[in-house]
Design a protein around this nucleic acid. Structure first.
Lengths: 255, 255
DNA sequence: AATCTTCGTTTGTATGATAAATAATACAAC
DNA sequence: GTTGTATTATTTATCATACAAACGAAGATT
């Protein structure tokens, strides 16, 4: 009679609240170009009607998009899409929307550029400033990577490895940057890891980085990271070359 | 006499609405350490009482802080301050709060590190990829800088110069990064420009950058920017050395 | 013509009521 | 006693409504 509560039948624990879903929807459509910068969005009442929700929910979604710099709303004017320069593109959500809307190859190329700029220097700083505890964490991540059997396990370890280096660099501003990049790369999973071929191929490259940081050799850390990124860069260029063409705008599959 | 309506009125006369002020207040107190990560914030009703505002305003402020990754609120739990790793430190507001709360010298040192990593490469990319229009904008900014009489005029031109280079680099991800850095540097005005001594002293350094970009010489652009940053770096180190001590935590003056 | 007034539209704020989520507790079953 | 389940209480989430404030635009006034 009492319908036994199914222990855990809900596969999606991401039961996003309403305002989050609305923000997600509207935000994605802005990044998507459906609402270009300078455009006046529909007013609150129209959103309410089109979504079938109350004004409160709509307003809270609007506030979130405001907080991300996507829109600016004022009485009597309405909500206007801000110029792109105001967008908080480095916000996790915004970046995800962008990355889903933009040409994925184009995005990947730019991402690779940023990595090539940041990561060698991050590793060099880590080599210079790491504490013993931070080194231990990097080594633990490396071991986890070496023991990884599945692709996803390897990827998790890889992320841990890079984050540990990031933290060891000891620069509070570099950390969120790195996190953003890695989160975005996670969304591009299909374009990076899965194309990378066999799992442990880059393990020696990672070992070199670890050794350089352990031995406090900034310059060799820099070189080791550059070498590793050359590998990634080759793949990126391959993908870019392969997908030059009309199909390039296909939305990417987010795993 | 009658002040004719200036063609384009002040865009944001900082007439912050209530929810924005609340978000500002609470956000600053989080960054400030008053509410540490993991802490449970007062609930809505208590905020209402302490601020003397309605629940609507409080809730909208909370939503904005949620959008910036500072807090996470759920029914029956309340609003909990997220771990720092979730914070969108690269958000303009969050960075401003952080920069007002943190040790300014410490902050400046990290900022300088990031600049030394990013800006030379940005300039190199600009030298490689600039379009004629982008070059024209850079040159215009340079002229404006050369003609600047006042400190604030010089600073505005300086910002324009760097932003133009940023845009010319042609990397969509680099742009918001640079904007964030410059906006943060703007807040640290007192620590950078005003200490820099006479206005046009770095003009020759800027000219070298301009020439390198005009002549499409990435490597010399890189070197020129590094040279310029060495100058800034010296000042940063000076300030850092001078302010080592108990007074170092004094909040900075935002111009 | 220039300025002031009025008006309508849209967001901002307030208030009260109901729904949903869940930690904590009390309770039942074994 | 231990385990699992039902209840409760508290907090946010959502809805509905009303009014205030900002402001553009049109119209009235000088």
């Amino acid at each position: 009679m009492k319908p036994k509560k199914p222990a855990v039948a809900l596969p999606p624990p991401v039961r996003r609240s309403l305002h989050r879903s609305l923000a997600q929807d509207i935000g994605a459509r802005i990044l998507n170009g459906e609402f270009a910068p300078g455009t006046l969005l529909p007013n609150e009442a129209e959103w309410c009607e089109s979504f079938g929700v109350s004004r409160t929910a709509v307003r809270e979604a609007i506030k979130m998009l405001m907080a991300k710099g996507l829109i600016l709303s004022r009485p009597k004017i309405g909500s206007r899409v801000q110029p792109r320069s105001q967008w908080n593109l480095l916000d996790r959500d915004v970046l995800a929307w962008y990355c889903a809307a933009a040409n994925p190859v184009h995005f990947l190329v730019h991402m690779q550029q940023v990595r090539e700029i940041l990561e060698p220097e991050t590793a060099a700083l880590a080599a210079a400033n790491r504490t013993p505890e931070q080194l231990a964490e990097i080594e633990a991540a490396f071991r986890q990577m070496a023991e990884a059997k599945s692709l996803s396990a390897w990827n998790a370890a890889d992320v841990r490895f890079h984050q540990a280096i990031l933290l060891a660099a000891g620069n509070e501003l570099l950390v969120p940057l790195g996190l953003v990049i890695e989160s975005a790369l996670g969304s591009m999973f299909a374009y990076t890891a899965s194309q990378r071929g066999d799992i442990g191929r880059t393990l020696p490259g990672h070992r070199k980085i670890l050794l350089a940081i352990r031995n406090r050799k900034p310059e060799s850390a820099r070189l080791a990271v550059r070498a590793l990124l050359r590998d990634t860069g080759r793949i990126v260029r391959l993908v870019a070359a392969a997908r030059k063409g009309p199909a390039a705008r296909r939305p990417i599959a987010v795993p």
